[in-house]
Every structure is written in structure tokens, then in C-alpha cells.
Write a protein that binds this DNA or RNA. Structure first.
Lengths: 235, 235
DNA sequence: GATCAACGTCAATGGCGTTGGCATAAGGAG
DNA sequence: CTCCTTATGCCAACGCCATTGACGTTGATC
């Protein structure tokens, strides 16, 4: 894509920026994550990132091929945080549940990053390590390779899907969330029974809907289904 | 947001564009949908939409508050298409499965709209109608109201979650999709067994499965779980 | 102390959404 | 038939964006 040089390591740091900052890949990713957390998805632009680093927009391109490359680096940083300190317990179901919740939690802590990165495959060290771990848990539990891969994909897809949904909801600007609440109160709660009998009959229950994530429930369903498969294999 | 007048109906049409086109809200939404389908997510811009209408970018703003408003209109149009011709079969499980796949399919046909709207509640007619339908199926099946609402929310959340995930993947620019495929081929398929034994052992299976959506499987799990609840109610 | 790669900065390009102002035409009023 | 109002199409412009090429400066190496 780009023709500029993209150093792959932080081995050498030279000139500080105008404000005396010394740049590294790690520092840039950290700053980008902080900007995402504090100012939302739209708050991260090359210009503003450069500014926050005490530098210039184009400086970012000395370290990353482009915003795309930066975003993948951010995603991998998230995976790294999610997997830090993880150790298998020997109970594959508990292990998988824990891993799923960790991924989900990491993404929720950085909703904007989740929305931007969860549909990408980075191939970077932390993500690869996490895949290796998940497959290891499944194969260690006794699943044949084909089943392990099938469950691995279902697990990853489900975790990412709910991460994006929950993160997108969290990441909505206040105005949008208020507008949505208003729609529930003013539209759904007031539909006449003649035209919308089912919504009218359940309106109080509908509107009182909780903000809980459906992910843990879905995860448990997946694990139960997998456990049934494993019993079938053993038998 | 914007100060310009936004007519809410197509009651009056006056001047045709330079190319003789007469504009309406409906025509603009249709054209936008066609552009999304033919040229992808990046293909829909105010400028190009105006051009495709035989008009000018700013003309779009005579009909919609902004691109955001247009996207919500597109989303509701999608719900309309998804639910068109739907009739209950009397088998609630088959009905729900069909509805879920329709919603999923509609979003996949227009990923950009899905990503932008799936975490929002528009309150527009087609979306409300779809909610009424889903609740009708559940209540008709004999679920008590509280269960119906719970299952309704789980169903919607899961459908939206996977819709966003799958749509986000589809909505990626060609360059990003190619980069992801390259990662699978060049990184995952070539990891040495010494450092990543589990990925190396399952690499062919892993790479082969990367395109399928996990949604239908997850949907079936949800329906099984709901059916168990219903049996418990009947007993 | 000369060379060279790394890298910060400047200026520019072409895209985007959006807006104010202006010109024009359709409908209504007289 | 004329005049006025209003909806609307279009133009030019604004400020934002990512990205790039050229330029100059620095630190490390020999």
C-alpha cells in the first residue's frame, strides 16, 4: 500500500519531538488507546494523535503503514491485556468461560477499539497466542481436531459478535442513547392495542428491559452444547 | 443538528434535476441502497449519491438531515424488505428461525447500514412491525408474557450481534479483506509446531473454515433452549 | 569527522460531510 | 395576468480527514 519505510521494532529512538517526547510504537499505541477511551472513535485521527504525541500527523506514518495498521496494533494490544496472567485450571469448561469473559471484558473497556478491530484478523503475536491457547484448551479436553476447530470458531465468533454489539451500545454518544430511550418510552409504550396488540400487551416488560449483556448466557449455551459433543465422542 | 428544512413527506415535487429526474425520499433511499449494493460501503457518499440522482451532493440535505438520517431511513427500508411476504406457518420454532435468518440476511445485504444502525432503536414503522411480529409468534406459541419478552430480547440481541459481526466483516474495504486472508495464509498456516503446536496441528481446518457465519448454529441453540422452557411451562 | 539511515516537519493533494446564498419554478391569491 | 411565497436545485466554500513527497536534521557507525 504505502511506500514509506515502516520500522518493525523500537530498537532505535532518535530525535525527540518539538515537545521533547520520544516516540515508540508502544507509546503511540498507548496514546491512541487513551484517545479512544477518552474521546471516542471519532476522537482518534492521525492529526489529533500526532498532536497528542507532541508531533505532527505525518509522523504517525513513520511508525505505521496507515491508520489501518495502527488499528490492528491496537487490537493486538487489547488481546495482550486480556490474556495477561491467564493460567489453565484443568477444567476446560471453566477455562473457556474465563477466556471468553476476558476477551469480552477487554473489548468493553475500549468500546471504540472493539468496533474498529473485532472483525479483523491481525496475525500479531498476542492474538495468535490467544488462538493457540483456546485451541490448546479444546484439544487438551479431548476434542478431536475437527470438533475443536468448529467449537473454536463458534466461540470466537460469538465472543466477538457480542463484544461488538455491547461495545457499540456503550460507545453511542449520549444524544443517541437518550434518543433511543425516548423511542422506547414514547413510541413502543404508546402503541394502540388495535394495531400492535403484542407490543401493547407486553409494553411494561419490554420497556423495563435491562441493560445486561446476553453474552454470558449465550456463552453458557455454547459450552453446554460443546460438552454434549464431548460426551458423544467419549461414548 | 442541521438548520436546513427537512420535509417529512413527498407531498410536493417541483423542479426536476438537470437530468430531468424528479426526487422523492423514496427514490433517494432506493438509489442509496443500489449504490451500497453495487459499490460497497465506501461507494455511498453524499457527493456520489447526488451524482447518481442526476443532482448535487447538497441536494440530499434538502431531504435528509444528514447522512446519519439517511442511513436510518435505509435501515428501516431494509426491515421492510426483510419482512415482506412473511406469513406464520403455525410452527413457532420454524417461524422464529425464518425471521432471524431474514433479519440477518437483510443486514448482510447492506453491511454499512447494519453496522451503523443495529445498535440503535429507530422506532420507524418497519422495525416496530417486525418487533410486533416476533412477539406475536412467541405469545402465540404459548409463552407467558415474561418468558416471551425474555426470549424476544435474547433473540434480538443474538441476531443483531451476529449481524454486526458478519456485516462488519463484509463491510471491510477490499484491501482490508485481502490483508486478512493473507494473514490466514501466510501467518497461521506457517506457524512452527514447536512454538504453536495446536495451531500447527489444525492449520488446514482452521484456514478452511474462516468464511462461514456462526449465526445459524447459535440461533438453533437459542431455539432449543426456548423450546425446553416451553415444555417446562406446559408441564 | 564523514556517511548514512532514521525520522520530525512542511506543504500539498484529493476526498469527505455539510452549509449559506442565490436562482428558479410551482402553486396560491388578487 | 401578476405578484408573492415557498420548495428546491445548484454553486462555492469551509473545515475536516488520510496520505504522501520533499526537505532538513539528528544520532550512530566506521
Amino acid at each position: 500500500m504505502a511506500k514509506r519505510v515502516v520500522p518493525e521494532s523500537d530498537r532505535r529512538r532518535r530525535r525527540p519531538t518539538k515537545q521533547g517526547q520520544v516516540l515508540t510504537h508502544g507509546l503511540i499505541v498507548e496514546t491512541a488507546l487513551r484517545m479512544l477511551r477518552e474521546h471516542g472513535a471519532d476522537g482518534l485521527t492521525a492529526r489529533r494523535l500526532g498532536l497528542a504525541l507532541g508531533a505532527d500527523a505525518s509522523t504517525v506514518y513513520r511508525y505505521f503503514r496507515g491508520m489501518d495498521d495502527l488499528i490492528l496494533a491496537i487490537a493486538d494490544e487489547l488481546f495482550g491485556h486480556a490474556m495477561a496472567d491467564w493460567r489453565p485450571t484443568g477444567d476446560w469448561r471453566a477455562d473457556l468461560r474465563d477466556l471468553g469473559l476476558r476477551i469480552h471484558h477487554a473489548y468493553l473497556a475500549h468500546p471504540q477499539a472493539a468496533v474498529l478491530t473485532a472483525s479483523r484478523v491481525t496475525g500479531r503475536p498476542n492474538e495468535v497466542a490467544s488462538d493457540e491457547t483456546i485451541l490448546g484448551v479444546l484439544r487438551g479436553a479431548g476434542f478431536p481436531d475437527a470438533d475443536a476447530v468448529r467449537i473454536y470458531h463458534a466461540f470466537i465468533d460469538q465472543s466477538l459478535a457480542f463484544a461488538i454489539l455491547d461495545a457499540a451500545t456503550l460507545a453511542l454518544p449520549k444524544t443517541a442513547r437518550e434518543a433511543d430511550e425516548e423511542v422506547w418510552r414514547d413510541t413502543y409504550a404508546r402503541l394502540p392495542a388495535e394495531t400492535h396488540p403484542n407490543i401493547a400487551a407486553t409494553a411494561p416488560l419490554l420497556v423495563a428491559r435491562m441493560n445486561d449483556s446476553a453474552y454470558p448466557t449465550a456463552l453458557d449455551m455454547l459450552l453446554s452444547s460443546a460438552a454434549a459433543q464431548l460426551r458423544a465422542v467419549d461414548a
